[in-house]
Design a protein around this nucleic acid. Structure first.
Length: 878
DNA sequence: CGATCCCGCCACATT
DNA sequence: AATGTGGCGGGATCG
């Protein structure tokens, strides 16, 4: 260090100054090999700087241009000081240039100047926030390290955090691929969902700690054995990553980072104090945290916080609680993704639709019960964790296709649904909580169902809510077709609008249609049928707690999937038949085309939210009911509410009506998932079974709008796809006409058409196979291949959505079941009724189950439908 | 003096 | 065995 003196002058400084290029990376360079450059730089000597400096020089020589840029950037904005406040996003913008840079000299490199936050800013400045999708930027760690004048170790700290948010993905040794913020919103959304599942409850700050603990204790871990932590989300990275990714322990830094972000997203206040976060993140052990351990955790959190701050996602604040002033961070990033909104580029925040990239998140694991699952990853993965949890996901491989993403989306959606449910439930339960946030760490519990969370709050953001509300309305409408297609698609983005019926998901390719928004209708109509809701309720009643899971499953399950078992399938079916309106969600995203993406993206989210909304509504209403929640019991209350709500809301035009009419029965939402067939590639559609086909239809025109590839194809086209209809559906479908659609018309899938053509399934459950996939976890990789569906293999992958794939194939569809992530793949058979629980589960396990627990009975509508779809019974195995 | 967190040792993973 | 990764925590600096 001594040396530093000089060094600072020269070398280090230079660093700043000289940033040197790097340009290289920018392109994607294929060329680059993974090879690491030699560490030449390294250190052999005491003078660190020197070596580095040399490197830099070399580099710079190589690309002078870049270096200029760099310089500018280099500069950092004063983060530290101000933290930038502001815009988070903005930070990155490169623009900077200026002076600051040069200054470095001014001082010696004080500690601050060497801070991770600043370093991160410099790092970020090198890459565009929203890179063109086409180009892939490769980041060489050595290069960057030399350019920035720091040791590689520091770069790892940055990259690991960025990777947790999917801003980059590891491609190979020493190489990372820069993705930019296109998927950030998706990632955040996923994290939020996961976070909700995991930390379902919220606690107030106050409680927080203690509460948390309590909770933990309470929580059951059962299934989830322990840990929980880690798995959380992972994302998969389809693209770039290589397998290698996981390794080592599990990169706690990444996991910690994700969890940390989740806490913010789940927190109502959006403020998380370090100590709380540390406590929550210390998973394992029970509470007793060693002091040292705690201390270490906090240290790491600072590292993470520095990076997040540089990203403009959080800023440091202090909260003064009773105890005094404590350091904390406030989330200043986007909050609701659901909506999506944004587009690409635009802001940072939002998501973007890009299809391609997407990578999203998937959650890997989880779930399953015990942690075993490791399977996914190769052996490597973990050994470590034996325990429980584990869930890690492994990453996938490097190239996963985009398809996977789709799957992911699907899974996400599912997850979302689950989350919503949970929330609802929770809400019901505890309305009171104060809370601000509750972050409880739940370990993965799987059980959600079982446990009710003590408090629940909606994690969702407020903001979301509103949207949701809209959505609800929408949803109902949605179904109808009236507008649907058009609106949605196109806009996609706009999505949120109530009017729109559809939601787009940017990323994903799938569309979900939910049936029956209207519960009322349903109810009315068919109370008997019971639909799911009823059933569920019934079931619940019958079953009791334990049942919960089941319940959920039931609900979840699609019609097709008979899984349920418990309940009378018949009923369900009946219900199903009825049709319902669907709502749809859809989205898409998938496409690659960027444009499309954006739009869709927004849509998508919303959809999810919708459900959530509904849920919310419900929940409040009947907290108690919550348990059953889904169940009908609520119906009475809730339904009323709902109905009320809806009605009022709905007033909307006819749309609803339509659905109702058509639907006849309540809806049940079944969904059909369509996988994209090859041709279609990207899209997947989910239709609710119930709904009338007509409703679903998409407007052809719209499709295009989407841009995507995905579009819906006309029936003819459709033929190619496999569409699945829920069994129940059938009936209704035929009728098609609901009318709905009008606009959309073009596409309609009418059922009939579908039927004729193709692959669609309608009908019975039998047909459908349960494929189940477990979850959301979806692996990207697998997803890619649809084909498998059934094969266990797939299952293994995560199950996640895989289902789809099957669909794609032509197969008849299947359904999706989700199962857990557990390793086992589900076989179709697995379907067994045994318990379905998880369906959704999603991501990881997050505890997904939770969501289910509630199910939506209440809500029925969308949510339920969705859920159902997801539902799938899980297989026994897991 | 507590909050931050740089720095780099060193273990484990991957080559 | 070499090298890549990244956990971890001592202890320096900041405020």
């Amino acid at each position: 260090e001594n040396i530093f003196d000089r060094s600072r002058m020269a070398p280090k400084t230079p660093i700043k100054n000289e940033p040197v290029d790097l340009s290289k990376q920018k392109g994607c360079t294929p060329e680059r090999n993974p090879i690491t450059p030699v560490k030449l730089t390294d250190r052999p000597q005491p003078d660190p700087w020197t070596p580095t400096a040399n490197l830099k020089i070399l580099v710079s020589a190589a690309s002078p241009d870049m270096r200029d840029r760099e310089k500018k950037k280099e500069l950092f904005r004063p983060i530290e000081n101000s933290e930038q406040s502001d815009t988070p996003d903005s930070l990155q913008y490169d623009t900077v240039d200026d002076s600051t840079v040069d200054e470095f000299e001014k001082q010696r490199p004080s500690r601050k100047q060497k801070s991770l936050g600043l370093l991160c800013q410099k790092f970020l400045a090198r890459y565009p926030s929203y890179p063109l999708s086409t180009e892939k930027t490769t980041i060489s760690l050595d290069e960057v390290a030399s350019i920035l004048g720091v040791e590689r170790r520091r770069i790892y700290d940055i990259v690991n955090v960025l990777e947790s948010l999917h801003l980059v993905s590891r491609v190979a040794k020493n190489q990372y691929c820069w993705h930019g913020r296109h998927n950030l919103s998706q990632t955040l959304k996923t994290l939020q969902e996961a976070g909700e599942l995991q930390y379902g409850e919220l606690m107030t700050f106050q409680h927080k700690e203690q509460d948390l603990e309590y909770k933990f204790g309470e929580r059951k871990k059962e299934t989830i054995p322990d840990t929980q932590d880690r798995p959380l989300l992972d994302f998969s990275e389809p693209d770039c990553t290589s397998a290698s990714a996981n390794s080592r322990k599990d990169k706690s830094l990444r996991i910690m980072s994700q969890k940390f972000v989740m806490l913010f997203l789940v927190s109502k206040t959006k403020i998380v104090t370090l100590d709380i976060a540390a406590k929550i993140l210390i998973e394992e052990t029970q509470d007793t945290v060693d002091h040292s351990k705690f201390k270490t955790k906090v240290r790491r959190l600072y590292d993470i916080a520095n990076v997040l701050t540089s990203l403009g996602l959080i800023k440091k604040v202090h909260v003064t609680e009773e105890r005094g002033r404590k350091p904390a961070f406030k989330w200043i990033g986007p909050v609701e993704f659901p909506g999506k909104i944004d587009e690409p580029r635009g802001n940072n925040t939002t998501s973007d639709p890009l299809p391609r990239t997407q990578r999203g998140v998937c959650v890997p694991y989880q779930t399953c019960a015990t942690g075993k699952q490791r399977f996914t990853r190769h052996a490597s993965f973990n050994g470590a964790q034996p325990c429980e949890g584990t869930r890690r996901k492994v990453s996938s491989e490097p190239n996963s296709p985009r398809q996977e993403r789709q799957e992911e989306y699907c899974s996400k959606m599912i997850n979302l649904a689950a989350v919503c449910k949970q929330k609802i439930e929770e809400d019901t339960r505890n309305p009171s909580t104060t809370s601000t946030l509750s972050l409880l760490p739940v370990p993965g519990d799987s059980d959600f169902c079982v446990n009710p969370l003590p408090q629940a709050v909606f994690p969702m953001v407020q903001a979301d809510v509103p949207n949701l509300a809209l959505l609800n309305g929408v949803s109902s409408q949605t179904l109808h077709p009236s507008t649907p297609a058009a609106s949605k698609t196109e806009n996609g983005k706009p999505t949120l609008l109530p009017s729109q019926p559809f939601l787009c998901f940017p990323s994903s390719s799938l569309f979900m249609l939910c049936g029956g928004l209207q519960e009322n209708n349903l109810r009315e109509t068919l109370p008997t049928t019971g639909e799911v809701g009823n059933r569920s309720a019934e079931a619940q009643a019958a079953v009791p707690p334990a049942a919960c899971q089941k319940r959920s499953s039931h609900k979840c399950t699609l019609p097709s999937a008979p899984v349920d078992d418990e309940e009378p399938a018949a009923k369900k079916q009946t219900m199903e038949q009825s049709d319902v309106p669907l709502s749809l969600v859809v989205p898409k995203k998938p496409f690659e085309s960027p444009k499309a993406e954006s739009v869709p993206g927004s849509g998508c989210t919303p959809a999810v939210h919708l459900e959530a909304f509904h849920l919310d509504l419900t929940s409040p209403a009947a907290p108690e009911a919550a348990d059953k929640e889904s169940t009908k019991p609520l119906d009475s209350q809730e339904q009323e509410k709902w109905s009320q709500n809806k009605d009022p809301d709905e007033p909307s035009p006819g749309k609803e009506h339509i659905p109702k009419e058509n639907a006849n029965q309540p809806f049940l939402p079944q969904y059909l998932y369509v996988q994209p067939t090859a041709g279609l590639s990207s899209f997947n559609f989910l239709f609710s079974a119930n709904q009338a086909p007509g409703a679903i239809s998409l407007a052809a025109s719209q499709v295009p709008s989407l841009s995507v590839p995905c579009v819906v194809v006309p029936s003819a086209a459709m033929a190619s796809f496999p569409v699945v209809c829920s069994p129940t559906v059938t009936g209704p479908l035929s009728p098609v006409p609901d009318g709905s659609f009008s606009a959309a018309a073009s596409m309609n899938f009418s059922v009939s058409s579908l039927a004729s053509t193709a692959p669609v399934f309608v009908g019975t459950t039998a047909v459908v196979t349960p494929k189940v996939s477990p979850m959301p976890s979806v692996d990207p990789q697998q997803s890619a291949h649809p084909t498998l569906h059934l094969s266990p293999v797939l299952a293994r992958s995560c199950g996640a959505l895989k289902l789809d794939s099957p669909m794609c194939m032509g197969h008849p569809v299947t359904l999706l079941k989700l199962q857990q992530p557990s390793s086992t793949p589900l076989t179709p058979k697995s379907i067994r009724p045994a318990r379905h629980e998880a369906f959704f589960k999603t991501p990881g396990s997050l505890g997904g189950p939770v969501a289910w627990k509630k199910n939506e009975g209440n809500q029925t509508r969308n949510a339920s439908s969705v859920q159902r779809r997801l539902e799938i019974s899980s297989t026994s195995p897991d």
